[in-house]
């Protein structure tokens, strides 16, 4: 029911809306798309105008950030007090141990421990944005390809920076090409490996974006059925929406896990190129 009310908040039921729904599918886009909230003057860099206004999705990121700050600093304060963590401190610690033992260390080895704050931030940031998007009336930050591209670029930068830091500038790019490759294949290999560098973050961004958007679109489409078929469709629509909604909870956690794990894997591979 909350879903439906949320939907109704966005779209008050009137005859024109029903007409729009029936005419084309753009109303879904309207709900998925970003909405400007606070105007900030655009920045001009080399003829390119960048709109820096705070939009709904940026607001969601900021809200997630504040929630994280509150929850995790609270957990830190709680855990500092007693020797035995309980409640929120215990839960946060359990999640941290999960990220450490099931994501970072299997992907990077024990050397990944010094990147833990980075991966904690990445995992919980994506998780919080995903979950906030499931709250009715809120927007999903990660269902914008710009946000996921931003996150993927962070991983890309970390990969290159730590790869170069560990292996040296020349060593890093040399190490990208597997050893023992015949000379005449080298030009092809260089192009492939260079493209591989770029496709990794690209895949990261698209995977997260697509997974987080798809569920929402399906829910909107299912609810749209009510407007197209009339009240007969209500039980089926709501049942299926609920199912997709529950599935989205799973996907929200899964995608945060996958994104963090792949980031850890890429950074780990850049540092230890010999495998």
């Amino acid at each position: 029911m909350t879903l439906l009310t949320a939907f109704l908040q966005h779209a008050p039921v009137d005859s024109t809306l029903v007409e729009t729904v029936k005419d084309d599918g753009n109303w879904i886009m309207h709900h998925i798309a970003d909405k400007p909230i606070l105007f900030i003057p655009p920045v001009h860099i080399g003829g390119v105008t960048i709109d820096m206004s705070i939009s709904a999705k940026i607001l969601m990121l900021i809200v997630s950030g504040f929630l994280m700050l509150i929850i995790f600093s609270l957990a830190a304060a709680r855990n500092r007090k007693g020797r035995h963590p309980k409640g929120i401190g215990n839960f946060v610690e359990m999640m941290m141990v999960f990220v450490r033992d099931d994501i970072v260390i299997p992907s990077m080895g024990t050397g990944g421990v010094r990147f833990l704050p980075f991966f904690f931030t990445m995992f919980f940031f994506i998780l919080f944005i995903n979950f906030l998007g499931l709250v009715p009336g809120m927007s999903t930050g990660t269902s914008s390809v710009s946000v996921t591209a931003g996150l993927a670029i962070i991983t890309f930068i970390m990969t290159q920076v730590y790869g170069i830091k560990h292996n040296g500038f020349a060593g890093y790019f040399k190490g990208l090409i597997p050893p023992g490759v015949p000379v005449f294949v080298l030009p092809v290999m260089i192009i492939i490996e260079f493209l591989g560098l770029l496709t990794k973050p690209f895949a990261l961004a698209i995977r997260l974006f697509a997974n987080m958007t798809a569920g929402h679109i399906v829910i909107y489409a299912l609810i749209g059925l009510i407007f197209m078929l009339g009240y007969v469709a209500i039980p089926v629509s709501i049942a299926f929406s609920l199912f997709i909604y529950v599935l989205e909870i799973l996907v929200a956690v899964l995608q945060a896990y996958i994104f963090t794990m792949l980031s850890a894997l890429f950074i780990g591979m850049a540092i230890h190129q010999d495998h």
Partner: peptide, 22 residues
């Protein structure tokens, strides 16, 4: 704009969380 905001928010968050939480 959204992309840059994401990166800025992420690194600010990383900095603050590293100090106060992680």
């Amino acid at each position: 704009g959204l992309l840059i905001w994401t990166i800025i928010i992420f690194f600010l968050l990383l900095l603050l969380l590293k100090k106060y939480a992680w």
